[in-house]
């Protein structure tokens, strides 16, 4: 069963992204720069959330944009939004680099669900629109659910590591995680006011 969440209107920024992306594929440096300008702060902040390491964050961004420019990673518009794609590439790049550095990410401290600080998320419309909603939805999860989501998504832990950290039988991790993520999406959809759940 898959929850189907309607695309919010107002997030239709992908056309411009696609245009930049296609120009960049033809070697247009300005378009790569435009993509960079648009996503720099989100991606940087995201990697900080994944790793809490500023020097790593810069290295990750460099790697991500090299992948874009040299076309080692290629965006397929039929498979979703550009923004989802570029954060996914960033997440994997970060996870790989963290592992490569063999820095065992401290699992002692959960990545805090950020308080609303009134910090500006600047000019990225999608971030602006979603940040409050996603945080609020996260805050409505139970502590255990938040921890599972954090270990899985933000820390990139293996299933057995999550089982160990959360004191769960290995076989139940997937079910718990899915439940937590579904709750999250449900809270989000309620806030966004548009849901159809199949």
């Amino acid at each position: 069963m898959m929850a189907v969440v309607k695309e919010k209107k107002g997030c239709v920024m992908s056309n411009r992204d696609l245009e930049y992306y296609q120009k960049m594929m033809n070697g247009d440096k300005q378009s790569l720069e435009a993509i960079y300008d648009k996503y720099e702060k989100l991606l940087y902040s995201f990697v900080i959330k994944l790793s809490s390491d500023h020097s790593l964050a810069e290295e990750v961004l460099q790697e991500v944009f090299i992948k874009l420019w040299t076309q080692k990673a290629q965006y397929d518009e039929t498979k979703g939004k550009f923004s989802s794609w570029i954060v996914t590439i960033t997440r994997y790049t970060a996870i790989d680099l963290i592992r490569a550095r063999k820095e065992s990410v401290s699992l002692e401290e959960e990545t805090d669900v950020p308080e609303e600080k009134g910090d500006s998320v600047e000019d990225l419309v999608e971030w602006k629109e979603k940040s409050t909603d996603v945080r609020r939805a996260l805050s409505q999860l139970s502590d255990e659910q938040r921890r599972i989501v954090d270990l899985f998504y933000f820390k990139g832990c293996s299933q057995s590591k999550i089982a160990e950290e959360c004191n769960l039988p290995l076989g139940t991790v997937k079910g718990r995680l899915r439940l937590a993520l579904k709750h999250l999406k449900k809270h989000l959809s309620i806030q966004e006011g548009g849901i159809s759940d199949a």
Binding site: V87, V134, F154
Partner: peptide
Amino acid sequence: DDLPFSSDP
């Protein structure tokens, strides 16, 4: 896919 947007700026 919405989780990255919870990042603190």
